[in-house]
């Protein structure tokens, strides 16, 4: 599989040309899957109360997104049209099961913590969305890069939200307390609101606001 992925594009296109680099950098800002394409906000946000599970989630999404893009792109000319959706879902579900099994074997506590949300990567619309919009029409290597780029753009937002929520909600980053005890003695206390699910939405809403105020071409006209 890997051979075809790298061998074909080398003939005509450079491996890391300007176009290829844009595939990775675009989703980080101008075409961010969460804040601009509005895809895949789904369930993964539920894990953003802390950085560590969010990080694992981000890695999992990058992995699934990149490899499902790659696989779909390789077999794109053989997929029967009638069952296209199901074929894509089977590819994604297989990869997500791989993630689940690996996580269960190597880090059981995190596996426990993420519980159903690992499985829900299957219905993460970014992955399905990229297969439909990109992998079905592009060569394997470029699809792979597109998958990584979108996974990264997604992971970046996830980590940002998690960092904000962990810092304000638990007064810690990556589990390490940030504020000294004297702060608490002086009357500072952790904001319990930020631990609740609803706060993830508020944080993203504000992030979108900031991004669009700074990058006016993204402003929604409707």
């Amino acid at each position: 599989m890997a051979d075809t992925a790298t061998a074909t594009p080398q003939v005509k296109e450079p491996l890391f040309g300007k176009k290829e680099r844009r595939l990775i950098t675009d989703p980080l800002n101008d075409n961010n899957p969460i804040t601009v394409q509005v895809l895949g906000i789904c369930s993964a946000l539920a894990v953003t109360t802390q950085i560590v599970p969010s990080f694992v989630m981000a890695i999992a999404v990058i992995f699934v997104c990149a490899f499902s893009n790659l696989t779909t792109s390789i077999i794109r000319n053989h997929i029967p049209k009638q069952i296209r959706m199901i074929v894509q879902l089977v590819i994604i579900a297989t990869l997500v099961t791989v993630v689940e099994l690996v996580l269960k074997a190597f880090n059981y506590p995190i596996y426990k913590q993420l519980s159903v949300f690992i499985g829900l990567i299957i219905t993460n619309c970014i992955i399905m969305g990229r297969l439909e919009a990109f992998a079905l029409a592009n060569k394997p290597w470029r699809s792979f890069l597109d998958g990584i780029g979108n996974g990264l753009g997604y992971g970046a937002i996830l980590l940002l939200v998690a960092a904000i929520r962990e810092l304000t909600g638990k007064g810690a980053l990556v589990g390490i307390p940030i504020f000294p005890q004297s702060f608490y003695d002086a009357g500072y206390f952790n904001n319990n609101l930020m631990v609740l699910p609803a706060s993830a939405l508020l944080v993203i809403g504000v992030l979108i606001w900031i991004q669009r105020a700074w990058n006016p071409k993204l402003v929604d006209v409707s």
């Binding site: 609101l193 609803a198 939405l201 993203i204 606001w209 669009r212 402003v219």
Partner: peptide
């Protein structure tokens, strides 16, 4: 609504507030 917040941004914030109300 401030232009940058229109549409998506506002939808998120509204959903968040609804979530708090449901709580």
């Amino acid at each position: 609504v401030p232009p940058a917040l229109r549409g998506l941004g506002m939808a998120f914030i509204l959903t968040g507030l609804m979530g708090i109300a449901f709580m």
